[in-house]
Nucleic acid binder design. Structure first.
Lengths: 217, 217, 217, 217
DNA sequence: GATGAATGAGAATTCATTCAT
DNA sequence: TATGAATGAATTCTCATTCAT
């Protein structure tokens, strides 16, 4: 038995061989760094170098884990199913009423932005330019919100409104109101939720109905 | 009078000499190219080189007009904001009812984004990541909306709601719904206006009231 | 008679036609700017652009007067025969004794550096790097000093020492002592002159003599 | 022991692994190239590109070693100053007489500049303009000379002259005479030393004396 | 696998110079 | 003759990626 195969055997003997442990850890390091970098610079402007620099690892190591910036981005997107989005989804899946659906969504979102203020306020006031960048997680979250609304309509919880427009409206309100909320000290997610929920609860009733084929009721 | 002096006289008579004409044209060329490039690659990924390449001009010429990518971007946004802000204000100034205020605002905005689609698509980059950047001009537009709402409240046209949050909500809905609208072919600003107006008309009634000191009525 | 020739005639009629006056003035503007720029950045690092920028003139105008940076440099060199150097030369030409020669040279030089401190202390402490650059005038001045020393030796005012080395030594002392002098507040050119003169008066006597053919006495 | 582990062991045993060797070599290549380029074009006119081109390396490699032209320059000068300063100090420490102090200093300096001609010619650029730049290392060398002179005065070896001015004068003579010396083929450091020593030996005697409070004796 | 130096393509910016006005 | 915008070559520097160790 060669040293090489001995080592392998030893590795396999461990619950999680030291090698695999390091591997998992390095992968994690890179993903975390990428998240920070994307949030700060935006996906387009971020470079692999930036990600590596935000890591204790050497440049070559990056390529043992990912082929490119694009690939890390995908990985974040995939992994992010484990972060804020499930909270939101869970909330909505259990919602029996429209109000629960909406207030649950907003409460979770506003709480999240308060917790995560530093990261979320990805509004780098580059002197005069206010910049907002949507991170991979958030983009994925939008799509899920649309699906959930469509689903709610199908389940009869929601009236048959224009799901895309409603999603867009909810997203827009989420972003802008959360930013406004963060300007108030201390930020009050409950108040913001009350506002957004009331707006939509009142609004949805008034919204033009959409029968499946398209005409309005 | 010699030919020489005739020419000089003629030149002075023109609103714009040939030189100024070329200047204006080149500036325009660059702005147009930048719009296209930002739309295609997204702001972050776009490079000054990309913009120049989308132009018949030489590389150095870019720098006779703008100092950086950021500066072109601001110029694009400001140009756009400068065109729409007066229209929006006018519309709102003449609004006698909440409904006129809201539907006027949205109709004007959605019509404008259809007209000016290139600009509003530019904000949304490649599929992977959305970026929105607000220049001082755009922020000023937000502020105007807030003022107009506050004014409406003072005049008793609007119920006494949270003007900042309402402004934020209207802005968020405007941006997000207009983007959704532009995805539909052909874009239908009337439909979008109906949607947004109904949402707010219904919503505002349900909004928590704000008496001056703060408690809700 | 065309307008063109009329104009020429008019120009000639003036003592110094307006045209020529402007020409002379512009030339002067450029030369002055170049002097400042060379002193600040050094000849090598200076660019034509830098010179133009230090001028109220347009870039194209530069080329009506000079073909290149090199040509301005030559012009400065030529013109600079009119500045500090003649003072030094005059001083030395009239020197009847070695002492008069030396103290006159130093006094004039130290006075000049005090007067012209801002410009002369072309020691831009770029953070850590002390930089000294010799302007065209100064380089020309060195050569004249060497000539004057050689001349003094020929006239028997100076003992037959190594003129190149003596020139070098005088130049080195001039630069370094003047810099030291400027560090003292207030700078005392008289004290510095006393020091340098004493050093050379004592030193020259002790210097190895050089007979014409080369051997030492 | 496998081949792999043998190699590792061997690598660690070496003073310098192959990598460090290449690194040292590349650094050297760049420094040498820079010396040549500065000598040919002068510091101001030289570009980083010029330095890279004078090297077999790729452009990016330069920046692995130095941040800028200035940094290479400092490295060159510091390297040089670092080598000569201890020699000069040693020489002066052992000097029992003024003459030994002065001639030792100059002999050491002139010998060194002949050895290290490349460096000392590098300071003097193209025919048109001279530049001298003193790095902190070089300035430290000046300061050491000042200290040694002050010390000599305290020990009574030197008469009580103005130590700063004397230091400045010695430095100026060293640089200028050494340059003159290098122009002569072959350079004769002995002759240059004889000249400089005689100058100062004669000169110091004649120098104004400085009693502690300031008046001359 | 991890490392980090080398590579050269490419980005941002400046330059000297020309030339229409 | 003065002007100043246009030009594209040249410069500085960064980047993604490779590969010997």
């Amino acid at each position: 038995m060669t040293i090489e195969s001995e080592r392998s055997a030893a590795a396999k003997a461990d619950k999680l061989g030291k090698r695999d442990q390091t591997k998992a850890q390095n992968r994690h390091l890179i993903l975390e760094a990428a998240r920070r970098v994307f949030a700060e610079l935006g996906y387009g402007a971020a470079t692999v170098r930036d990600i590596i620099r935000a890591t204790p690892l050497a440049s070559g190591t990056f390529y043992n884990y990912f082929k490119s910036k694009e690939e890390v981005f995908q990985a974040i997107r995939d992994e992010s199913a484990l972060r804020i989005r499930p909270r939101l989804r869970l909330e909505r899946m259990h919602a029996e009423t429209v109000e629960a659906f909406i207030s649950g969504t907003y409460r979770t979102f506003f709480d999240y932005t308060v917790e995560d203020e530093a990261n979320y306020t990805a509004i780098r006031s580059n002197e005069t330019l206010r910049v907002r960048m949507d991170t991979p997680e958030i983009l994925a979250g939008f799509e899920e919100l649309r699906e959930d609304i469509a689903n709610g309509i199908a389940r009869g919880v929601f009236p048959p409104v224009d799901a895309e427009y409603l999603m867009a409206a909810m997203v827009g309100v989420a972003f802008e109101v959360s930013e406004e909320m963060l300007k108030r000290q201390p930020p009050d997610p409950e108040e913001a939720t009350r506002f957004a929920t009331a707006l939509f609860m009142g609004g949805i009733k008034a919204l033009p109905k959409k029968t499946n084929g398209g005409g309005e009721a």
